[in-house]
Design a protein around this nucleic acid. Sequence first.
DNA 1: ATTATATTGACAAATATTGTCAATTGATTT
DNA 2: AAATCAATTGACAATATTTGTCAATATAAT
Lengths: 133, 133
Amino acid sequence: MKQIIQRNTVQCDLVLNAVRSLCNHPTPEQVYSYIAKSHPSVSKSTVYRNLDKLCESGALLRIPVPGGALHVDHTLTSHYHMYCKVCGNLYDIEAAGIGDLKNEVTVSNGCEITDCYIVFSGTCPECNKADKN
Amino acid sequence: MKQIIQRNTVQCDLVLNAVRSLCNHPTPEQVYSYIAKSHPSVSKSTVYRNLDKLCESGALLRIPVPGGALHVDHTLTSHYHMYCKVCGNLYDIEAAGIGDLKNEVTVSNGCEITDCYIVFSGTCPECNKADKN
DNA sequence: ATTATATTGACAAATATTGTCAATTGATTT
DNA sequence: AAATCAATTGACAATATTTGTCAATATAAT
């Protein structure tokens, strides 16, 4: 694993623990709000910076959503995400039979490929129900 | 294909043609700049609104990048994208053996899944070279 | 030509992210 | 334990990105 984090700081711990506590793939803003409850002096820049570092180090995972804000997840077991087009929330889903797609790349035009992001999208149960009204 | 576009407007045509001309998966800002050259009076809101509509109708595709701005692509043949972590540009790449991953979803928690986004990431040739200096 | 309404332009406003820099703090050395 | 050095922080400004408002306009149907 890459070694990007050079010093252990209380703020970095706070950020990591916040993401783990907020089990719902939080945005930086949600992480900041969560931390602010107990540590109001932690600045938003620090949250962004530590999220970046934790993603680079591999402790967290960036979940790309089409045109939305950054979402992060703490890496547990292998699972996938669904982005609800209506409410914008992210949900964990299970998918079998998805291998390591990096190996499927045939022509990369000289690009060095290190990661592969997969995100499903659709509508969540709540928004399905709301649609029928 | 869904019918979201209710009226054909010159602005909508401009947006679609801009994305097609700018072959590099442009952001809304880049589309706006491109159109402004020939039609300075088209507002940025209009660009965003039409990009949304064109994505909903299926004429364009949203490319999710981890934590970045929206990128769109006009759907041609089936291909994939790589996001360069260094410069932020998007590149087309070819990948064989990737089926329709929607069918691999085993547990969706009641979510209705309609789309699947796949984005690779890594470093592009230019940034690889720059790294070695 | 008239009508109804989707769409636009011009902004403002909101949201999201990054940059600056002196002050602080963590790890290392003495 | 004290001194040192540099990574990190907090406070805030600045930038970037996206959305909202509303009167004016343009499109498609009658």
